[in-house]
């Protein structure tokens, strides 16, 4: 153990950890896959932030039904992607839909991570009975087919943004807990943890300031993948009619509303599908790039 300590990473605070994360994103230049992913994600984040300026129409306004892409509106603006059966501008709905999904997906992921990390740290660091109970609970939740779980939860507590975040937290925190638990089991025997214990620091301080910052590598990669997965979930729930209540734009819901007309008006369904797929692809490629870089050093 003593000989190993020279190669071990020293205990770091959050400031240094954040700096390192930013640096590792800088390293993305070396992975073109990661760069494409980062570009796609950045594109949609910018679209979501500047939605009010990009969208030329109110996303819920019924203007001109069944307009083909490129049709001019009476107001002088153009329906670049056409309108849907209710006369709503598709581009505006996709742009505002980006804001919806990029609000709820990170929120749900963050909430799942908070619960998962706390559970994982406790299970891994304390061990014993706490570990047994938490591991059993997560085994049971993970044994559910995910979508069945979502459908039952959403069907019983109702569909709303908050409930979707709640359901995703419930279903995905056990997976995060397993990862954090594994990492903690590995890290808790390091010298810097022993040093902190000798200094007399409290358990929670050690978990949150010594162990967690050093476990960030695999967690960041997992978070990117999970964000992509949460976006799929939100999309699928919207598609099944269990998503955010209408009329606010939501990509999955847009597909569900227009798919019966896909034979005559394929663009109504295709554009939201392209939007959601490209955003998920962005997160998955980003995760792949980050993993490639983290394996390199």
């Amino acid at each position: 153990m003593a000989t190993k300590s020279t190669t071990e990473m020293p205990s770091v605070g959050y400031g240094a950890a954040i700096l390192r994360v930013i640096k590792s994103f800088g390293l993305l230049r070396e992975s073109w896959v990661g760069m494409i992913g980062a570009f796609l994600v950045l594109f949609w984040v910018l679209v979501a932030i500047f939605a009010p300026w990009i969208a030329q129409f109110d996303p819920n306004a019924n203007i001109l039904p069944f307009a083909k892409p490129g049709t001019m509106a009476a107001s002088g603006h153009t329906f670049w992607l056409g309108t849907d059966h209710m006369g709503r501008d598709l581009l505006s709905r996709i742009v505002w839909g980006a804001r919806t999904v990029l609000t709820f997906a990170p929120l749900a992921t963050l909430s799942a991570y908070t619960v998962g990390i706390l559970m994982g740290l406790m299970a891994g660091y304390r061990g014993g009975l706490v570990d047994d109970i938490l591991s059993r609970i997560s085994d049971i939740i993970l044994s559910f087919p995910v979508l069945v779980l979502y459908i039952i939860v959403i069907a019983t507590i109702g569909a709303s943004g908050f409930n979707i975040v709640l359901a995703i937290t419930f279903a995905s925190s056990p997976g995060i807990m397993r990862i954090v638990r594994g990492l903690t089991l590995d890290l808790r025997n390091r010298d810097y943890v022993a040093a902190a214990q000798t200094r007399g620091e409290s358990d929670w301080r050690i978990m949150l300031f010594e162990i967690l910052p050093n476990a960030r590598g695999p967690l960041i990669v997992d978070a990117c993948l999970r964000l992509g997965y949460v976006i799929i979930t939100i999309g699928v729930l919207g598609f099944l009619g269990l998503g955010l209540p209408p009329p606010d734009p939501d990509w999955g819901g847009m597909v569900n509303e227009t798919r019966q007309m896909a034979m005559v008006f394929p663009y109504m369904t295709l554009f939201p599908c392209i939007a959601i797929s490209s955003l998920i692809l962005g997160f998955n490629l980003l995760a792949d790039g980050l993993r490639e870089i983290s394996l390199r050093d």
Binding site: V236, F239, S277, L281
Partner: peptide
């Protein structure tokens, strides 16, 4: 794997 089932069904 980046394309959700409903989207690939549409495609």
């Amino acid at each position: 794997t980046s394309v959700p089932e409903f989207a690939s069904a549409v495609f």
